[in-house]
């Protein structure tokens, strides 16, 4: 009897082992704590963006004059806008070009995601003009559109990569809010009631972008790396430059536009 049952015991033992291995480990109840910075799905730590790129967008030659605006169709605008109003296309001071979007166009590590600021970006319709005329924001960041005029404005974002946004604001101080899901540079904004009114937005999926200030200066905070930086102007188009920055580095990057530069369709 004993002799015979030996192999049987052994095989039973095997089966038990197998079963034990299979079902053995589901006792755990408490999940292990997930530390910060686990790979995938986590957002970029902005404190790592410690390198600085500064520079100036210079303009060579005589800046072309801006177009005059005929505001007679809307008495309100005619009344409230400045004397002899013009468009804001080219603004040069100290040889520097204002309203140029400067941004990192490639070189960021793939797959990285960046926290979306919850503070909204604002655009105001004041005296039949958009202020600011050019600005940047991140995808899914709220955009607040305000009408400070006593007349009807509609803000119409002529987006191609996003659903178009077109809201009429018949009431003074009315505020509408929207978001853009996809990056799009530039995203033109127009008022269909007042066709001279125009603005440009740069929508990015990362926070490394800015707009040149009066005098053409700009500053970008980026993490160390090797980047392609692009400058875009509504009339003079795109220029790109390469830059390499290290930890806590400071680099200067100067773009230059002139009258012969032509904007591309995008």
């Amino acid at each position: 009897m004993h002799k015979r049952s030996l192999p049987l015991c052994a095989s039973l033992l095997m089966v038990a082992l197998v079963a034990g291995c299979g079902g053995g480990s589901n006792e755990t109840n408490v999940p292990p704590p997930g530390g910060p910075g686990a790979p995938g799905g986590t957002t970029f730590d902005m404190s790592k963006a410690n390198a600085t790129i500064t520079g100036k967008i210079s303009f060579e030659g005589t800046p072309p004059p801006n177009d005059k605006i005929q505001m007679s169709a809307d008495p309100y605008c005619a009344q409230h806008a400045a004397q002899n109003p013009t468009t804001e296309t080219v603004k040069v001071s100290d040889g520097g070009l204002e309203n140029v979007i400067v941004f990192v166009s490639s070189g960021l590590s793939a797959g990285a995601t960046y926290a979306t600021p919850t503070t909204p970006v604002e655009i105001n319709q004041e005296n039949c003009h958009y202020t600011p005329h050019v600005f940047t924001m991140m995808t899914n960041q709220p955009l607040k559109v305000k009408n400070s005029d006593m007349t009807l404005h509609n803000i119409h974002a002529w987006a191609e990569k996003n659903p178009q946004f077109n809201v009429g604001q018949p009431v003074k101080d009315m505020v509408s809010e929207t978001k853009f899901k996809n990056p799009e540079v530039p995203l033109p904004v127009r008022c269909d009631v007042h066709k001279w009114m125009g603005a440009f937005i740069g929508v990015f999926d990362h926070p490394f972008h800015t707009v040149s200030k009066s005098g053409g200066s700009f500053e970008l905070k980026v993490p160390p790396g090797n980047y392609e930086v692009t400058a875009w102007h509504e009339k003079f188009g795109k220029k790109t430059m390469m830059v390499q920055v290290g930890d806590n580095d400071k680099k200067e990057l100067n773009f230059s536009f002139n009258t012969n530069d032509k904007g591309t369709a995008d």
């Binding site: 946004f165 077109n166 809201v167 009429g168 509408s176 929207t178 269909d192």
Partner: peptide, 16 residues
């Protein structure tokens, strides 16, 4: 919602 019917239309919505 005019955009829904003619995407890109110049007619704005007044009821966003």
């Amino acid at each position: 919602d005019p955009q829904k019917i003619f995407p890109g239309t110049r007619m704005p919505t007044f009821f966003p």
